[in-house]
């Protein structure tokens, strides 16, 4: 294929990839802040939308950012740790029920947690009555819920990573008198940290975008995550008027992930081929 042809094709795809993002940027700095007045090329530049976003009485945007980041950080860290524990047992120890356990996890992995949303709703209706601190509209409740999906998603992946680490390493540590806990924390964890970071990033992004369960779970303005809150921002009457604010919020949400993405680009390819999915 001619080189020029290749460039033309890639440029075309780049244009397809970038024009919605360009539209968001121009809508975010559009001083009028409505959908109708937004265009690809900004007709003026101002930070009105950002200022409006942070001073809004109706939309506690700062709170949403905090909720989202907290839930995503806590659930990705905790769920990776939980699945690392399980993967360590499955990869390094031999015990009765090991094969059955691995197969069961493979089966469970096929059923996404949100398919049971109807009964999750019913269960948490009861939990809300008994333990309001872990019920609807609470960060802790949705965190518990997200942790329920942890083992099914990541254990096989982690076991794959651990299987690539030579067993001799931890065997020699055991011979030197290390306990199983010391082997886990001092030998295994440091070795898998780079790949864990990438998986954690993917889990983080996935949780940030989780909408189905969060939308049913979080109804209070104060308890919402970015996905639920920003959805409400341009629902109904606000659809046209709040678009500038929404675009600004999108950019603010994107900044940290885009940054980390560009930074981790090299590792992400290998992490992705190991089996994480998005889009």
């Amino acid at each position: 294929m001619k080189l020029a042809l290749r460039h033309a094709f890639v440029l075309l795809v780049c244009a397809f990839a970038l024009f919605p993002i360009l539209f968001v940027v121009s809508a975010a700095i559009n001083p009028l802040g409505t959908l109708a007045s937004s265009d690809l090329v900004p007709n003026g530049a101002s930070f009105d939308n950002v200022a409006k976003l942070f001073s809004s009485d109706i939309y506690p945007f700062g709170r949403w950012v905090f909720n989202s980041v907290f839930i995503a950080l806590a659930s990705s860290t905790a769920s990776l740790l939980l699945s690392m524990f399980a993967a360590y047992a499955f990869s390094r120890m031999r015990f009765a029920g090991r094969r059955v356990g691995l197969l069961a996890l493979l089966l469970i992995q096929m059923f996404p947690q949100f398919l049971a949303i109807v009964t999750i709703f019913m269960i948490f209706t009861r939990v809300s009555e008994l333990y309001p601190a872990f019920g609807f509209n609470t960060t802790w409740g949705i965190l518990l819920l997200y942790l329920g999906g942890a083992l099914g998603v990541n254990t096989w992946l982690m076991k794959g990573f651990l299987d690539t680490i030579p067993k001799e390493l931890d065997e020699s540590a055991t011979v030197d008198g290390a306990t199983h806990a010391q082997v886990f924390w001092k030998i295994i964890m440091p070795l898998v940290t780079p790949i864990l970071a990438v998986t954690a990033l993917l889990a983080f992004i996935g949780t940030m975008s989780e909408f189905l369960m969060a939308n049913i779970f979080l109804r209070d303005a104060e308890s919402k995550t970015l996905a639920v809150g920003m959805y409400g921002m341009i629902a109904g009457d606000g659809r046209n008027a709040n678009f500038g604010m929404f675009a600004a919020a999108t950019l603010i949400t994107a900044i940290p992930t885009v940054g980390v993405f560009l930074w981790l680009q090299k590792f992400i390819v290998s992490g992705l081929t190991a089996g994480a999915v998005k889009g």
Binding site: A17, I21, I205, S209, L226, A227, V258, K278
Partner: peptide
């Protein structure tokens, strides 16, 4: 870039 932008938004 499209992959790094928040999907829901």
């Amino acid at each position: 870039l499209p992959y790094a932008m928040p999907a829901f938004a």
